[in-house]
Structure formats: C-alpha cells, structure tokens
C-alpha cells in the first residue's frame, strides 16, 4: 500500500511539474531538480543557488474556461481583489490559483515575521527603539508586552525626544513590516510638510519595533505631546500585506479606552495612496487639536 501511495505521489508531482513547465512558470532545470528529489524519495533540499523567480499570470486574468459572459467576470474582478473568477478543476482550485494563494500567504507571513530593515531606518533617518517584547515570538504571544516600551527604550525616549510638542509621530511595525517600508517613504514627508505648513510643532518621528497600537499611550506619557499618532502596519490579509493604519489620540491617560482613538485605515497603493493620506491626516490632526478630543468624543463634537 505504501508503495502504491508512493507511486501515486510521484505521478502527481510529475504531472504538476509538467503542467507548470508547460505554462512557462518553471524552467527545465527547476523541474528536473524537483523531479529527481521526488524520484529518489529524498526530501527536497531547496536549491539555494538558483535565483529563479516564479512569475504568475496577471491577477485580473480570468481563469474560468468557457465563461457564459467573460465581460461580466472581468468587470466583477475589477471591483475586488478577492479570489473570484478563478475557475476550478473538478472540486478543487486550479494549480495557478492554489500557487497564488500559497504565495500570497507567504507574503503575509513575511510581513509579520520580517523586521523593518536597518537600511530603511537609516535612509528615513529614524531613531529606533523597541517595545518590551524582545522577539517576534514574544511579541505575538504576549500582546501586553507590545503595548509598552522596554526599559532601555524609556530611557532613550526620555533623553532624546523633544517634550511638550503638539504632535508626536510614531512609526510602529505592528503586524506588517512590509506596510512600513511600502508606505512611510511617501506618507511621512507629506504629513510632515502638511503639519509644518499649518504651523504645528512636531517632535522628530521615531520607529518602534515589536510595537502595538497602545504603545502610543506609553510614549505620550513620556514626551507629553498634545496628540500622538501611530503609523502602524495592519494585520496582513491575502489581498494585500502592505496596508497601513494611522491611530491618533488626544492626550491619552490611564482612563483611555479604544473609543478615544481616531483611526484612518487602508492606506496603501490600492487604497488611499500614501502621499494623499499624509495630506488628509494633516486635516484630521488639525481637527483633533482644535477640538482637544479624538475618537468618539471628536465625532460627538461635529
């Protein structure tokens, strides 16, 4: 039985590989590598020398065979990044949609587990501190640690940050480092320009590693700013791993609740473009400063 299963497995692997090669998504070399590993019953050792990239067909490509109204499917696909119009092979997804699903899932995992690179922080001239969560694992397992600064970070922030400013900007990795690297280069300069033009006093923005939204309350208690805004990576989905949110709060304290925060979400190239978001956030910040309130309290004043 085991042998039969094994044979069947080989046949399946072979036909998948051939299908991929036929579609030009896998080179002959790549195919041979996988096949030989399958035939020898040895686990696949990733071929680290190969820099081969897999290219997917464009997402808007309609995958249904013999559609009744192809235009309708195309129009619907335009309205959503969701996986519709992908066809099926029997009761299962087609090879291409399955691979895309796995790839998008991998992108989402990378967004969570990778760190924002040192090179990026230097290029953006951002000071970096860390939350009380010492590692990604701890960050994911202990939400409470991500909500406050490490002892060392408290010291750094108290020594280096300007106090009593109107606005303090934090850049927080949260659940997507990819969102930070994708959006901050366009969002931050637009926001800084907008605040400066409006004559608002802003402290130097800095980066917090392994941080969650609430960490802004801890920082605000040290820098004593009127308003604190966190630009934080959103939990990635299979549609995009690059979405960023801006959480703003006016003078948080020990009684602060979630409803006290104003949030603008969905900042990424497929949502509100980051540069435009920077200009819009300037308006929201001006409203909060004028109303001396954020979140639901701000909305109630409107």
């Amino acid at each position: 039985m085991a042998v039969a299963n094994n044979e069947l497995e080989k046949v399946i692997i072979q036909s998948v590989m051939e299908e991929l090669a036929k579609k030009g998504l896998l080179s002959q070399k790549g195919k041979d590598h996988v096949m030989s590993a399958a035939m020898m019953d040895t686990p696949i050792v990733p071929n680290t020398e190969s820099k081969e990239m897999v290219t997917f067909p464009p997402q808007e490509e309609m995958q249904i065979s013999n559609p009744f109204n192809a235009d309708a499917v195309k129009a619907m696909k335009k309205l959503t990044p969701a996986r519709i119009g992908i066809g099926r092979a029997g009761t299962r997804p087609k090879t291409m949609s399955l691979l895309r699903f796995l790839a998008d899932h991998a992108v989402a995992q990378d967004a969570v587990f990778l760190d924002v690179s040192e090179e990026f922080l230097q290029r953006m001239n951002l000071m970096s501190v860390q939350s009380a969560a010492a590692s990604k694992d701890e960050f994911l397992q202990r939400p409470d640690l991500g909500r406050r600064l490490s002892v060392e970070a408290v010291k750094t922030v108290s020594e280096k940050c300007e106090k009593n400013v109107q606005v303090q900007i934090l850049i927080v990795d949260g659940l997507s480092s990819s969102a930070i690297e994708a959006n901050i280069p366009d969002l931050l300069p637009a926001l800084m320009q907008g605040l400066k033009s409006s004559g608002i006093k802003v402290g130097a923005p800095f980066f917090v590693k392994n941080g969650r939204v609430w960490i802004q309350d801890h920082v605000a208690s040290i820098v004593n700013s009127d308003l604190i805004i966190s630009l934080i990576g959103e939990r990635p989905g299979l549609g995009t791993a690059e979405s960023l949110s801006a959480y703003m709060i006016y003078r948080p304290n020990e009684n602060t609740v979630e409803a006290d925060r104003t949030v603008i979400s969905n900042i990424h190239k497929g949502g509100i473009p980051p540069a435009e978001a920077g200009a819009h956030l300037t308006d929201v910040i001006k409203q909060i400063l004028a109303a001396k309130a954020s979140g639901v309290k701000l909305n109630q004043q409107k």
Binding site: Q193, G194, A275, E276, A279, H280
Partner: peptide
C-alpha cells in the same frame, strides 16, 4: 485624474 489632489495642492502651497 489620479487620487492626489490634496497632496499636490499642499505641495504647491508649500
């Protein structure tokens, strides 16, 4: 046409 009227205006103003 692109969604950047506000930031473009802000840049011009600045």
């Amino acid at each position: 046409e692109a969604d950047c009227g506000k930031v473009l205006g802000q840049c011009i103003s600045a």
